[in-house]
Design a protein around this nucleic acid. Structure first.
Length: 1076
RNA sequence: GGGCGCAUAGCUCAGCUGGCUAGAGCGCUGUCUUCACACGGCAGAGGUCACAGGUUCGAGUCCUGUUGCGCCCACCA
């Protein structure tokens, strides 16, 4: 009984997965108690070993994983599996991200499509907040399960017992504590700012949640009447100024007109006023160098678009344009908001002087309709000068697709500009604590921090972490301030003097939006001190409306109910998704509670040890667009929140405040997979590939091998996508290679097993044993310690094979250390296919059945290949190892492949080869034989010699000696080249001459009859080709500079090559003469 | 506008600090169903390394510039 000639993944993958996950040794489970950072990697049961940890970039629960995920997770699994086999205590922490805005948008869209939801979500009768969140929760459950299944089908060896979710209790606890600490330390503040507003989802969105789109529009030239006539330096008298705008309706919120101080008209106009049509508001003309001067020649091709279109007068709308907002701040202009959250023009949100502009109320801003109506009114008044077509890019919401409205609103911010945040993240880069691979990506990271702005973290959504802040609006006077500020019950808490749990307050003056520092004797701003005598009283100047914000990290201190009784309302907003993502490396491991986290999730009771053992993790693997969104924030948060002296200081209540540890020392940025046309894969383009479709069709290993193989150091990789006519699913012919590779490995092992006479090869396919244990192991003793006399083969091809294995181990180790995945795959491809199959297995066919020492080498080489390949192709190698491990084989000196204690390949020790196995002499000699074989094969093919015909090689005595020196090696050439005999006899008249390394050789008995004409043509071609080569070489050697400056070794090589070519030419020419 | 990357065989890509007689896989051509594998073996065809300059004895590789494509950041006058 033998293995079938094909590897059919679907027959093995589920069984192999079951073995991994049900084995009592729990191979994917990390035990922090076994970790010792100072230990050497080893496999001894119960021994201490160094940690190796990767925290998964949590996939969004918005949908299923795509090929980019497959790539990233394959790479992480490769690293994880390799290190596990190398003897590290290995943790790959899995989990998913709630992806606030993205998931809410997807679910909202679904509900709209199904007709369940009509109109805006907020205020919807059908969906209360709780009910909607319930629906999102259901969605999350569905896709979290799908994602987990996908990961498992891919073979990802995550520690699934620890799987986390950003919004689970552990994650939420971390968010709460982190928010509290930032709030307490003054790094979270409330501010009225201009934000990106999505008028459909009705929430603020981050800059990175928007994307630019080219839009056709118009430049409208509007005339603003001056309140008095002005005489320009040119002598011209004007009664209006003309502004150019793409969004005419925003004129309703204009609070100034700006011009460049260098504009010759500025002197006459700055300080004058214009009156806004219909609104009637009078606004000043101000000067600011931000304003672009009009181009002298607007038609010149390289003129900046702004200079080309501008009139020199810029309408300033601080409430609805980011630049105008900055301008407004600089000039202390009023900010008028003319828009309701749904994007309609409204006088209910801070706009009072509506005047005759009433007719615009209710219009949706940024629509053609609004532009039309507003400009029509200007036209009626004779104030529309002209309009010009203009194509420009406008930012759109990534989630709802509508244009983003800059919108003035109250939001929470993290002060990432603080020295302890972004600058600290850069410090980690400069000190080498964090390193990017490839290194160029460090630049993206660095410049992001150099230009960073405070991070708006509040989102007006329902799906996410609720902001842990309660608010009450109060009016403070000289008389009532103490009573207003004191919150009953808090006095008691203060006496606890607890640093761990706490409560803190912020006071924001409503009129100005400014945060009022708590004025205590201790100068502990925001840290609430409840001792009345430590407060400075409110003075007359301080009187007014205030918002008081309370933040606590522990509901037991002050319960939500108690706060409500006091008239506090919980902030309705949720946090930006990246806030919880930023905590991911530490929250998943139980920050901030350590051992106590087990109360929140009893699945893992070793939380105290977990963080200590595995943080910092070893590497973060991700796509480059995540560098700013996520990598940066994880570094900032970890450095701020984790203790400075970590891991010596293990008191998690200590915040490092920018001097804590980095969450990982290495960041690997993988390439982006595009389709065959270089486009991004996306749902809308229909060019996405589902990893499960690939796995169904090709097998997980095939997919993984190809993904690994294409992970070079470049930015993008193209993957031509085809639609499978049968299934209608997207696929790519690129994966053929992986499938073929697995089949080849399968058959090579099959062949080896046949020749090793061992295990019942059939059982792997038909009836895999549930556990391999209990059956005889292949090795009797550790091969590393065995003496060379045990089995070391003296055969050249065996030494060559071992040398190839040894040097591949070395190169694979290097590639893994440098995150050079493609090189790793390539090495394994060459070793398994080219070296092992094409040469070694073919070469040993005549001898292996009777040569015990060769069998040992065969077994050890195969075992090594399976181990080295396992991280890339875990399923097929595991299935094969199940058979191979049962085959007895003597140890091979220098190649250490001890049996796996569990019987599983996934925890088998990584092969170790002695340097002495790398045998350059054997490789050189083998190369000689390979080339000889090739030369004969080529001659046979070009002379159309029949496949089965055995021919005769005529060679010189030296070559014959070399071939007979090693019985097996000589036999190899004979069998691979199809030789009947090798002789020193003079070749017969009809022999075909060829030269091999400057030796004249000949082949005879090629055919029943030779064609002398064809032979002559071929020889003439050879001579011509050689002449060309000789000319080139001679030219190089005649160059004085080359002789003088090139390395002598190179010159010698050229000379030798020239001599060889000349000899070959002479021989060919002579033979040509003989043939007449 | 700032930054990064890519342009090498029909396709997808290697080619590190300059020595190449430029490689791999797929595809193509020929041949072989020989007892591991036709998802295979063997052999072969196919490339002025985007373009133009420069440095060098020598450039796919280094420098400068040009063109084309892609990505990130900034930018709604």
């Amino acid at each position: 009984m033998t293995l079938p000639p094909r590897y059919i993944p679907a027959e093995h993958e589920p069984l192999v997965w079951k073995r991994w996950t049900t084995d009592p040794s729990r191979p994917f489970h990390a035990d922090p108690k076994r970790v010792d950072r100072g230990a050497k990697p080893n496999h001894a049961p119960g021994a201490k070993r160094p940690p190796y940890c990767i925290v998964i970039p949590p996939p969004n629960v918005t949908g299923r994983l795509h090929l980019g995920h497959a790539l990233n997770n394959t790479l992480q699994d490769i690293l994880t599996r390799a290190h596990r086999m190398m003897g590290f205590e290995t943790l790959w922490m899995p989990g998913t991200d709630h992806a606030g805005i993205a998931t809410q948008a997807v679910v909202e869209k679904r509900l709209r499509e199904s007709g369940e939801l009509i109109g805006p979500l907020r205020g919807s009768e059908k969906f209360t907040r709780e009910k909607f969140v319930e629906r999102v929760q259901a969605w999350k459950e569905e896709y979290e399960a799908a994602i987990t299944e996908q990961l498992q089908r891919m073979g990802c060896s995550c520690d699934y017992d620890r799987q986390r979710f950003t919004m689970d209790e552990i994650g939420s606890r971390a968010v709460r504590e982190a928010f509290f600490r930032f709030f307490r330390d003054g790094l979270i503040y409330r501010g009225k700012r201009l934000v990106n507003w999505d008028p459909v989802l009705q929430t603020a969105v981050a800059d990175d949640e928007t994307e630019m789109e080219e839009v056709d529009g118009f430049f409208y030239y509007l005339r603003y009447p001056l309140t008095e006539k002005v005489t320009l330096p040119s002598g011209e008298v004007i009664d209006h100024v003309t502004v150019a705008t793409t969004r005419p309706e925003t004129y309703l919120g204009d609070t100034a007109v700006a011009m460049n101080p260098d504009d010759p008209r500025a002197k006459a106009l700055v300080g004058k006023r214009v009156r806004l049509p219909l609104v009637g508001r009078e606004i000043p003309i101000i000067q600011d160098s931000y304003v672009v001067l009009p181009a002298k020649d607007p038609d010149a091709p390289e003129v900046d678009a702004k200079a080309k279109y501008t009139t020199g007068f810029l309408k300033v709308t601080p409430g609805h344009d980011p630049n105008d907002y900055e301008l407004g701040l600089r000039h202390k202009l009023p900010m008028i908001n003319i828009m309701a959250p749904d994007g309609t023009i409204s006088d209910k949100h801070g706009w009072t002087d509506v005047g005759e502009a009433k007719l615009f109320l209710g219009l949706k801003v940024s629509t053609a309709k609004a532009h039309k109506l507003v400009t029509a009114e200007f036209e009626k008044l004779g104030l529309l000068q002209e309009k010009k077509p203009y194509r420009h890019s406008v930012s759109h919401s990534e989630r709802s697709g509508v244009p983003i409205e800059p919108y003035l609103s109250d939001q929470w911010y993290v002060k990432v500009t603080d020295d302890r945040m972004a600058p600290s993240a850069n410090k980690a880069l400069h000190s080498g604590e964090i390193e990017f691979h490839p290194a160029r990506y460090a630049k993206t990271y660095e410049s992001w921090h150099d230009n960073i702005r405070d991070w708006c973290i509040s989102r007006q959504l329902w799906w996410g972490h609720r902001i842990p802040v309660w608010r009450k609006r109060i009016t403070l006077t000289e008389k009532n301030w103490y009573d207003e500020l004191i919150v009953p019950g808090l006095d008691d808490i203060n006496t606890k003097e607890s640093t761990k749990a706490g409560i803190c307050l912020q006071l924001v003056r409503v009129a100005t939006g400014t945060v009022v520092p708590w004025r205590t004797e201790e100068k502990k701003f925001f840290l609430f001190s409840f001792r009345r005598d430590s407060w400075l009283p409110v003075t007359k100047a301080d009187e007014g409306e205030y918002d008081i914000f309370i933040c606590t990290n522990d509901d037991s201190i002050y319960s939500p109910a108690a706060l409500q009784d006091q008239g506090f309302e919980r902030d309705p907003d949720v946090l930006d998704t990246w806030f919880s993502s930023a905590l991911w490396p530490i929250s998943t491991m139980g920050w901030p509670d350590g051992a106590e986290s087990a109360k929140l999730d009893p699945r893992s009771d070793d939380f105290d040890a977990l963080l200590k053992a595995f943080l910092p993790s070893n590497v973060l693997s991700t796509a480059r667009e995540i560098i700013t969104l996520w990598v940066s924030r994880m570094v900032m948060f970890s450095r701020y929140l984790m203790p400075e002296g970590w891991p010596q200081d293990q008191d998690l209540s200590h915040s490092g405040q920018g001097r804590g540890p980095v969450p990982f020392p290495d960041v690997f940025i993988h390439s982006v997979i595009q389709d065959g046309q270089g486009r991004k894969m996306s749902k809308s383009l229909g060019n996405g590939v589902d990893p499960l479709d690939i796995i169904d069709h090709y097998g997980a290993d095939a997919m993984r091998f190809v993904l690994c193989n294409m992970t070079t150091q470049t930015q993008d990789v193209r993957m031509p996508v085809e639609k499978d006519p049968k299934t209608g699913k997207n696929t790519s012919p690129k994966f053929d290679m992986g499938r073929n590779f697995c089949t080849k490995l399968w058959n090579a092992t099959r062949f080896a097993l046949m020749n090793l006479g061992g295990g019942d090869a059939g059982s792997a396919a038909s009836a895999p044993s549930p556990s391999g244990r209990g059956q005889g192991e292949g090795f009797q003793s550790s091969p590393a310690r065995s003496s060379s006399s045990s089995s070391s083969s003296s055969s050249l091809i065996d030494r060559w094979m071992l040398s190839r294995v040894a040097s591949t181990i070395k190169k694979v180790n290097e590639s893994l250390a440098n995150y050079e995945f493609s090189i790793y795959a390539q090495q394994m491809y060459d070793l398994m296919w080219r070296d092992f199959c094409d040469w070694y297995l073919e070469a040993i066919k005549p001898t292996v059945k009777t040569d015990a020492s060769q069998q040992a080498v065969l077994r050890a080489a195969l075992d090594s290949i399976l181990r080295l390949l396992h991280p890339v192709c875990p399923f097929v190698t595991e299935a094969l190892y199940e058979q191979v491990r049962l085959v007895a084989g003597a140890p091979v000196a220098g190649l250490n492949v001890p049996p796996s204690a569990s019987g599983l390949l996934c925890t088998a020790p990584w092969p170790i080869a002695a340097d002495a196995l790398i045998d350059e002499k054997a490789e050189a000699e083998f190369l000689f034989l390979q080339e000889l074989t090739d030369a004969i094969r080529t001659a046979r093919a070009t002379k159309n010699v029949e496949q089965r015909r055995k021919i005769t090689l005529h060679a010189d005595a030296d070559l014959i000696a070399r071939l007979s020196k090693d019985r097996v090696a000589g036999g190899m050439v004979e069998s691979l080249a199809g030789l009947e005999r090798v002789t020193a006899d003079k070749p017969p008249q009809d022999a075909v001459l060829f030269t091999f390394r400057a030796r004249e050789c000949a082949l005879s008995n090629l055919a029943d009859a030779m064609d002398p004409a064809a032979e002559k043509t071929s020889l003439a071609e050879q001579v011509a080709k050689l002449d060309k080569d000789i000319a080139a070489l001679a030219g190089r050697l005649n160059n004085a500079g080359y002789i003088q400056k090139a390395p002598p070794k190179l010159v010698e090589e050229s000379k030798a090559l020239l001599a060889q070519k000349e000899a070959e030419r002479a021989a060919a020419a002579r033979r040509l003469g003989e043939l007449g």
